[in-house]
Computed example of a mutant assay.
Amino acid sequence: MSDLIFTVENDIARITLNRPDSLNAFSLEMIDLWIGALETIRDSDNIRAVVLNGNGRGFCAGGDVKAMVRGEGFLQSDGQLDITSTALARKNSIWKKVQRVPLILQEIDVPVIAAIHGVAFGAGFDMALACDIRIAAENTRISESYVKAGIVPGDGAAWFLPRLIRMDKALELLWTGKQLSAQEAKELGLVTHVVEDEKLNDFVNEYVEKLANGPKETMRFIKRAVYQGQEMSLRNSYDMISSAMGIVTELEDYQEGVRAIAEKRKPNFK
C-alpha cells in the first residue's frame, strides 16, 4: 500500500497519511506523494475543498523516532534526516522535502481542513497548523515535541504558533514539549472544533461538504484576503478586497446569491 492516499470525489480532495503502523510518521515516499497531491490541488480549477487526515490510531507522529534511534536520520528512504551528511546538505534536504508541504499549502486558495485524532506530534501537528481549519477528536493528544529530541521546530511551529496564540504560550509549548488534550488546544486557539471520537468523520464530512457548496471564487478571494491581509496595511487590504469585490459581482454566483436572498431560499452555487 502507498504511504499516502490521494482521492478526489464530488470536487472534494482527500489526502490520507497511510503509515498506520508508525502512527503515520513521515517517510520519503509520503512526502513526495504529499507534495504531488498538493500541487495537483493548487493547480486545479475544479477542487473546492480539501481534507487531510491519517489512517489508523493517530493523525501523524511527525518524524520517525525509531529511525532516529537507529541513526538513520531524516529524509532517507524512511523519511529521516541523514545525520552523516553535512549541515548544509541536511538543511537543503529539509527545505526541498518536508518544508515544501506547508509552503504549497499556503498557495492553495480553497478551504483545507485537518481532521485530527489520536496523536498529532511535532511536524505532524505543524502540518495541521498549516491548514485553515482543525477539527479534533476528543481523544487527540497534541505536542510540539521537538525539544524532547533536541531539535528545533523546523516545520513551521515557530511561525504558526505566535500567529495563533500569545508569544509566551508559543514559547512555553516549544520549550517544554508539553502534551495538550484536544480541549486544551481548542481553549488556546489551536483547534477550531472538538467532537466526540466516533463522530469525527461524520462531522468533518458534513463540514467540508457545506464549504464545497459555497460560491467557489468568492471563497477563494476571502481566503486570500485573510491571509495576505496579515502582511498588509489597512489601506492595501482595502485596495485588494475592493478589486475582489469588483470581480465577484460579475460572476453568476453573485447573481444567484442575491436572487436566493430575495426569494428566501437556499442558493445553488456553481
Rank of each mutant, 00 (worst) to 15 (best):
G257L: 04
E196N: 13
S242G: 00
Y238L: 09
S233K: 12
V204E: 05
Q230R: 10
E252H: 12
E206W: 04
Y254G: 02
L200F: 09
N201L: 12
A244K: 04
E196W: 07
D253W: 00
Q228L: 14
V195A: 02
G257D: 03
E198D: 13
D197E: 03
K210I: 11
E252I: 12
E256W: 01
N236Q: 15
R235A: 07
L251P: 01
Y227F: 13
V208E: 08
R235H: 04
S243C: 00
E198H: 10
G246A: 01
E209Y: 11
N213M: 08
Q228N: 08
K223M: 12
A212G: 03
R235L: 02
V248R: 08
V226W: 11
G246Y: 00
M245T: 07
V195Y: 06
K210C: 09
M245I: 13
T218E: 13
I247V: 06
Y238S: 03
M232L: 13
I247G: 00
T192I: 05
L200S: 06
Y227N: 07
V208I: 15
D239E: 14
V208D: 07
G229Q: 06
D197P: 01
N201V: 06
Y238P: 00
V204Y: 05
T218W: 07
P215D: 04
V248S: 10
L251V: 03
T249Y: 05
S233E: 06
E196Y: 11
M232W: 04
D253H: 02
E256Y: 08
D202N: 11
S237C: 10
S242E: 01
K216A: 13
N213R: 10
G229D: 09
N201F: 02
H193E: 07
S233G: 13
Q255Y: 14
Q228H: 08
F203W: 08
M240A: 12
L251F: 07
G246C: 00
G229N: 09
S242P: 01
L234G: 00
L200E: 11
M245K: 12
A244S: 06
E206P: 01
M245F: 14
Y254S: 14
N205H: 12
R224L: 11
G257Y: 00
E198M: 10
A244F: 15
E252Y: 11
V194R: 05
Q255W: 08
K199S: 07
S233P: 05
Q230V: 00
D253S: 00
H193R: 12
Y207T: 12
Y254M: 10
Y254T: 15
E206D: 14
N213Y: 03
E250K: 14
I247W: 00
E252W: 10
E250M: 13
Q230G: 12
N201K: 10
A225E: 09
G257F: 06
L251M: 15
K199L: 09
A225D: 08
K216I: 10
D253M: 02
N205Y: 04
F203I: 11
